[in-house]
């Protein structure tokens, strides 16, 4: 991958204004590197965002960019993509933007399987409005709007998008430049809606919330990286793995040299979303990597097919053909 060189051409001349120590800086760099790796000129990319800390990102990349209104980025991106199906359209959003005020548009874009890439910065808190709990904040979390503790159970993002039959879902830590770059490129290459959940640490309002799964010292025993065709094995000693458990999955440990035969092998292409759903339900280990990637018709493909059908079958009055559509038939 040549993403280490040339990515600076994708950064704009604007001062980046996130808090010191925020993962957003790393995500921005990974994004610019991914754009460089894709290898297309910057005018082929459109970056659309809503409102929130993450949504400032379009100003910092040298592409076409539209900073929209709260929660509506997937809807705005839909219009861009339908006019120009050959453009790469990116939605930059956060847990408040995509899962509170904009849940509707977020899920409908996924349902339609529009070929867009949604990068969801999940920091489990409202940052820009300064520290209220969000739809992904954990129970009992004390925030400025829940001084006695949060009583609203959180969404599991992966489970939610799988309910809308997402065709690409990946999870990455917001501090892992290389992993993010790689997954962003795969998301772009995927035909259909790609959702990438980025666990992004907010150093000001929710510091350390992902520490066990994103810090190198602890992640090895609490994070499971999946890869298509590889067994679900993790742990310092490689003696931890995932097996089936009724309708779900559960972690096991073993002492023998060889892993038990019931340890599962990752398959990102299964049609039935239950397996991917079970992976997203695990919290220890937390699953990272491309959890689901399968092909189903995109909205644009269906629209194209429909247009051909309409061209053949629509009954259009002579008056309209001649006077309005200026056809000579």
């Amino acid at each position: 991958m040549n993403s280490n060189s040339g990515y600076k051409a994708f950064l704009s001349d604007q001062d980046v204004r996130w808090c010191p120590g925020c993962d957003d800086y790393i995500i921005l760099r990974a994004f610019a590197r991914a754009l460089a790796a894709i290898g297309l000129p910057p005018e082929r990319h459109v970056v659309v965002s809503g409102i929130g800390c993450a949504s400032r990102l379009p100003y910092y990349v040298n592409t076409y960019g539209l900073h929209g209104i709260h929660g509506r980025a997937p809807a705005i991106a839909t219009g861009v993509k339908l006019v120009h199906p050959d453009l790469y359209v990116w939605v930059i959003t956060g847990d408040g933007d995509a899962l509170a005020i904009g849940t509707n548009h977020f899920l409908h874009a996924i349902r339609r399987n529009l070929d867009i890439n949604i990068l969801l910065f999940n920091n489990e808190i409202y940052g820009l409005t300064k520290g209220q709990f969000s739809p992904t904040s954990r129970l009992d979390l004390k925030t400025r709007s829940s001084p006695q503790g949060n009583i609203q159970p959180p969404f599991h993002i992966g489970s939610l998008v799988l309910g809308a039959d997402v065709s690409f879902f990946a999870r990455v830590p917001g501090n892992d430049l290389n992993a993010m770059t790689k997954v962003f490129v795969e998301a772009a290459r995927h035909k259909g809606t790609s959702v990438v959940e980025i666990l992004q640490n907010c150093p000001v309002f929710n510091d350390g919330v992902f520490h066990p799964v994103t810090d190198k010292s602890t992640a090895v025993d609490h994070a499971l990286w999946v890869e298509h065709g590889r067994p679900l094995i993790y742990g310092k000693d490689g003696k931890r793995g995932i097996v089936r458990d009724g309708c779900g999955l559960r972690p096991i440990r073993w002492e023998s040299e060889q892993p038990p035969s019931e340890v599962m092998v990752h398959d990102e292409k299964v049609d039935n979303p239950s397996y991917a759903f079970a992976l997203t339900q695990l919290s220890d280990p937390m699953v990272f990597g491309i959890i689901r990637r399968m092909r189903r018709p995109t909205y644009e493909e269906r629209s194209q097919a429909l247009k051909q059908k309409v061209a053949q079958s629509a009954i259009v009055h002579d008056f309209i053909r001649k006077a309005i559509l200026q056809e000579n038939t």
Binding site: G68, R72, A75, I76, G79, V80, V83
Partner: peptide, 8 residues
């Protein structure tokens, strides 16, 4: 919102 995206 999609119409605005289309205009953009």
């Amino acid at each position: 919102a999609s119409a605005i995206g289309a205009s953009f």
